[in-house]
Design a protein around this nucleic acid. Sequence first.
RNA 1: GGGCGGAUAGCUCAAUUGGUAGAGCGCUGCCCUUACAAGGCAGAGGUCACAGGUUCGAUCCCUGUUCCGCCUACCA
Length: 918
Amino acid sequence: MSGKQLEKIYEPKQVEDRWYRHWVEKGYFHAPLAHPGEPYTIVIPPPNVTGSLHIGHALNNTLQDILIRWRRMQGRNALWVPGMDHAGIATQNVVERQLSTEGSSREQLGREKFIERVWAWKGQSGGTIIQQLKRLGASCDWSRERFTMDEGLSKAVREVFVRLHEDGLIYRGERLINWCPRCLTALSDIEVEHEDTKGKMYHISYPLADDPNTALTVATTRPETMLGDTAVAVHPEDPRYRHLIGKKVRLPLTTREIPIVGDSILVDLEFGTGAVKITPAHDFNDFEAGERHKLPRLTIFNHLAQLDPKGLKAAEVEETVTSEIQNLPVSKARSKVEQALKARDLLVKTEDHKMALGKCYRCKTVVEPYLSPQWFVKIKPLAEPAIKAVEDGRIRIVPESWTNNYLGWMRDIKDWCISRQIWWGHRIPAWYCTSCNRAAMVEAASSTSSQRAYTFLATAQPMVGRTAPAQCPACQQKDFIQDPDVLDTWFSSALWPFSTLGWPEQTPDLKKFYPTSTLVTGLDILFFWVARMIMMGLKFMGDVPFRDVYIHALVRDAEGQKMSKSKGNVVDPLHVMEQYGTDALRFTLAAMASPGRDIKLAEERIEGYRNFANKIWNAARFILMNLDGPREAVSPKDRPFADRWILSRLNRTIREVTASLEQYRFDQASSHLYQFIWHEYCDWYLELIKPALQNKDSVEATRTRQTLVETFETVQRLLHPFMPFISEEIWQTLPHEGESIVTQRYPAPTPDWDSKETETEFATVERFVSTARTGRSLLNVLPGKALTLFGTARDPEQWTTLVNRQSYAAHLSKGTITADKAPDKWGARVLRLPAEGLIVGIQVEQDVDLRDALVRISKQKQELSKECERMEAKLSNREFMAKAPEDVVAEWRQRIVTLKRESDLLADSERQLQEMTA
RNA sequence: GGGCGGAUAGCUCAAUUGGUAGAGCGCUGCCCUUACAAGGCAGAGGUCACAGGUUCGAUCCCUGUUCCGCCUACCA
């Protein structure tokens, strides 16, 4: 025995870490500028610096790694840019939680110290996910790792902000925004998750000011907001109410009177009572209605979503009511207001009502519409080119079905609120002159005696620039305060495809690798991230950020439930890798990545692919044990039958896997690999060649050993993008050239491996063997016992195959075969089984239990005759004969002949068996 | 409310210009045959959600229904 001997069972742990370190040390993942290949670039969807690898990351990065390794092996200059984003709100939450366990807070620490603290945290425990990606085998170019808060990327953020502002695409203004009263910051529209909730609809009576006996009834789901109402709207064409437009109602629980206005946008004639209260400071629609009718805005909640005494006073709320509800959170105040209305007999009725409640996507707190000065991106001018790029195919979304989703959203896009009232992130590059803005400065809640902090009202005049201004152009003063807000994290992620490559500098990387090739991501961030990258890429690079967007599925648990920590149904990829090996996890995820379908991940599947890895491992063992002796590389046509066959099949597999990858059909590619390796290579090929190998010194053996090495080495390369570790480990033990499989060429089809004739011949052998084995099983012949077999075929080609390939068929059937054209003369104790034109005869020994065989053959005969009847009915249908295409008719005719013949033979066999039993 | 997708073997999913329905896992039987029991061989299992329509022929095309997902939305 020569060469290396392998353990009996594949042990991933002994392999994975070793190879990964080796690959990195050798720099195989580095994409050099001088590389002659056409670039193939992927930028990683940057995971949160707070994150740790979950199964969704595992899927996302496995698919990227498959693409990158595949393209790298194809000779492309493959660059996978890794990195993380700073996850403003999430990271700030993590560090604040830490501070609170220490009895401190960010306010106590002060802004500067707090940010130092976040960096310290990042240095220590941030970014564990990077290590976990390495564990997954991700072949990123780690020398190019980026972080959204890096100096370079921060510079890009400032540059983009300033340029957008110069172009009039960034503005500051007081608007209603989504406010998280727990995170104490604004959120963009898409950072709000909507959740169906059971609520109540309250019908409240608003008496007319000049006629208290008449009242308008308004309906609302949030009765507490009525205290901030500044009008009631009715439809201008509503005959019930239109005469009231211009009159006033007395707003209950307050001393105010508010006007009745006509508004055809806000009011739906069909819905509710036909009268709508308007609360411009606490509802998005009402805000707009307020604009239309020039209504005042009364803010009655504070930033914690509590009823604000000052606001209540300004809204002229009755003191008895105020004292009941002031400083209560919204949810508690609601019932108090309900009671107060009831006591005054103004609550007409309440009914159950289903509604969608907005919640903060980070902390699930109910979000409040909140009136405050914020920074916005005017998005329409950016969206238009981004729509066009997808419409005209410069960007392709795969699967295509998501394209409409994207387009629909983009066409209806709203301005993007980019300011966040937190400290961790890119601070907005805008400054306020303290003397010009004195009236617009308010001391902030976080202000302390040692560190003054301010917020700026909507009336403040910011100066936007790359650096702080030196002198105020208006008053010549030199005292400035920078805007305290930071930018939405997605603002910096939107620049990721070019900021990571060095923009705004015109770096060689940027020139070489932009636009990137493919973006791989989940549907959940199509709008958050993908859409914004497209807009920013087009605006600042003048070209799309990527050609293809591959959208993969969401991973769910085996029952189809979304995985969540609270449900306890998460599959931890680290645990899976530990238990089954990384390659098994990767292959599972690839195999299950059917387009447009969520992945329901059951652990048994992973186990199945662990077994697959082991199967490959054992095939390698077998091959290494049989490699002793000379090898002769001759052209395929001069190789033994089995070799010609497997070369032809391998060629087909190479084509299929490559075509599947080109279409992002990871599932198909995996299934072709699995099918070929296990069921063709291992089940048939390795068995077919055993006799030849045993005769070590034969010419056949020298040629087969060569084929064995060639094909198995090729299989490893074909498999490598999917199962990088085991393929490298095995490849290294096989005769090979080059130092690592990572940098070898991906297999390409070799035309002279194709052999249609051999495949046809093999099909005959396979059919014969399977039939013989079925016979063995029916007759309860033990696997070890040799069979005495006969065989014949009607078709001359099949007959020739049977004669020529007799030794293979005999070996795999474990018996001796007599090829004989006259099956009637095989003898009374030879059971004949039909198989699509073949007849296989099996010598039946004495004292064999024939019941199984009899049952089976009778059943089969019945099925066949049933099918014959069906087909005959068809063929006697005049319309079918007249209208069906000729080839279909011919096919059915042919089929019925075969079926009849087989059914006759089965009848014979049945009779024969009955005689033997008797 | 609108939009999209799905319903195929016990489970998870494929497939088809409309002409005999496939795989993996699971299940049953036999076998520790020196690559592999994380294995081998053989097998069972399907009115392709329901109801109509088009067609010589429908799992596939059309219409409707039911159920299940997801996205989206200001019905107070």
